[in-house]
């Protein structure tokens, strides 16, 4: 069991990295990677929401949707759960920890439309994961997202000092850099051996 979980973790974090290999969460990946600091904040916020959201949707699927044969309401339920959850987390964090709120607060509203969150929730059902597997998968996937985000932020900070041709200024050069990063991450495939 532990071996299986480790396999899931390595695969979700590195081999099939959510942003660089699966293209989930590309918008925040490009949008919030200008500074390493904000990349760290976004990564932490996503990790938190993704883990909680995937566990909650997993429970809803098992306890409500499947017993009542309402699988066709999956998409609509999941997105509402995620939106409500983000609101809830925002309120709780604001009340309990002003420090944490300051660090994560501005990223939370952006997370509702992060397709990586909904993606994890749906993938978990497609793969028919159990509770522990879901937990591992969500945490590893979000850690992989955070890793990619921080790495890209590092590259972008250096890019600010470099000469960039006019046509490539802005998002174009960032996308090319992301492509190089994705290429580097391809080196991780073949890492997982049964």
């Amino acid at each position: 069991m532990a071996g299986e979980l480790a396999l899931i973790a390595v695969s979700a974090m590195l081999v099939n990295n959510f942003v660089l290999a699966r293209f989930l969460g590309v918008c925040p990946f490009l949008g919030v990677s200008r500074k390493t600091e904000s990349a760290l904040g976004m990564g932490a916020a996503v990790m938190f929401v993704m883990t909680v959201a995937s566990l909650v949707t997993w429970l809803i699927q098992r306890l409500v949707l499947v017993p009542f044969h309402l699988e066709y309401l999956q998409t609509i339920t999941y997105i509402l759960v995620i939106a409500a959850l983000v609101q809830l987390v925002e309120m709780v964090v604001q009340k309990t920890s002003p420090v944490l709120y300051q660090a994560l607060g501005i990223f939370l509203p952006l997370i509702t439309t992060n397709c990586a969150i909904l993606g994890v929730a749906i993938l978990v059902q497609q793969k028919a994961y159990g509770f522990l597997e879901t937990l591992t998968f969500a945490m590893a996937a979000s850690a992989g997202f955070g890793l990619a985000l921080v790495l890209l932020a590092g590259i972008r900070e250096s890019l600010e000092l470099a000469f960039v041709p006019k046509a490539f200024q802005g998002n174009a050069i960032v996308l090319v850099a992301a492509g190089m990063l994705s290429l580097a991450f391809m080196g991780f495939s073949g890492l997982v051996r049964g």
């Binding site: 290999a21 050069i173 960032v174 996308l175 090319v176 492509g179 391809m186």
Partner: peptide
């Protein structure tokens, strides 16, 4: 996947 990013950037 890397090709997608690079083509989009170009």
């Amino acid at each position: 996947p890397p090709g997608a990013f690079i083509v989009m950037g170009l």
